[in-house]
């Protein structure tokens, strides 16, 4: 089913001929993506035999996934971490992200308010508080993402092999914090009765591909 075709064994960085670094020239990435998409898109291989068409489809899917991941600075970090740890295929659990220790104290208050909001109708004061908390958390999320894709990413690109495990640890911590913040922000939005369609996010700009989205559970008999 999965042929030995060279492209299909490449990781996302290799698909674009890039080193495992986090600084990526996005204009150049898009130019290359268009070139690779033209080369591998099923549209241009309609006359090929079925096995080859199936391989083209998989290659095309890989090119698309690689572009989607690498063009987004956060998804790029998340993918790099999984690649370094040899777990490109997602597996995890469906548990909600838990609060990182550093956030535990301030989250306590928010969780209280959320629990209260769930039991009854919101009065204006609670609504205002929840709104403020959400704004504060959103700012914090933006900060965390800026740190992750800015200084932390730069640190990886300059790290010696001996330093890399430490940077990876920092990445994982930052990603966990981010996942947790996003969950709580979603909860707050939901408590405020706002539209939460799109909780999964889109494949667009800020979507983190995979990462904390858990898995499995399909072990029923």
């Amino acid at each position: 089913m999965f042929s030995g075709e060279a492209t299909l064994r490449k990781n996302f960085f290799e698909v674009f001929g890039l080193p495992r670094k986090l600084a990526v020239d996005s204009a150049e990435l898009q130019r290359q993506f268009y070139a690779l998409a033209r080369e591998h898109h099923p549209d241009f291989h309609q006359a090929a035999p079925p096995e080859e068409r199936a391989r083209v489809e998989e290659t095309s899917a890989l090119v698309n996934a690689a572009y989607r991941t690498l063009r987004d600075p956060v998804a790029r970090v998340d993918y790099l971490v999984r690649l370094e740890e040899g777990r490109e295929t997602r597996e995890g659990d469906t548990a909600r992200p838990t609060a990182p220790p550093a956030l535990l104290q301030e989250m306590f208050e928010i969780q209280e308010a959320l629990a209260e909001a769930k039991t009854g109708a919101l009065d204006d004061a609670t609504r205002a508080t929840l709104g403020e908390q959400r704004a504060a958390l959103s700012a914090r999320l933006a900060e965390e993402e800026a740190r992750l894709t800015g200084p932390l990413s730069a640190r990886w690109d300059g790290a010696s092999p001996a330093d890399r495990p430490a940077v990876l640890g920092a990445f994982k911590e930052a990603l966990a914090t981010r996942a947790y913040l996003r969950t709580v922000i979603d909860d707050l939005s939901q408590a405020l009765g706002e539209e939460t369609e799109g909780r999964h996010g889109s494949a667009g700009a800020t979507r983190m591909n995979g990462g904390t989205g858990g898995h499995v559970g399909a072990s029923r008999q």
Binding site: T94, A203, H215
Partner: peptide, 26 residues
């Protein structure tokens, strides 16, 4: 995919360029 507790575990988010694939271990 529906996972334990009836929660959806998203493998491919909306607006992903196609063809596309996602892989998971079970």
């Amino acid at each position: 995919i529906e996972s334990l507790g009836g929660i959806v575990n998203v493998l491919i988010p909306r607006n992903t360029t196609i063809p596309t694939s996602a892989r998971e271990m079970f």
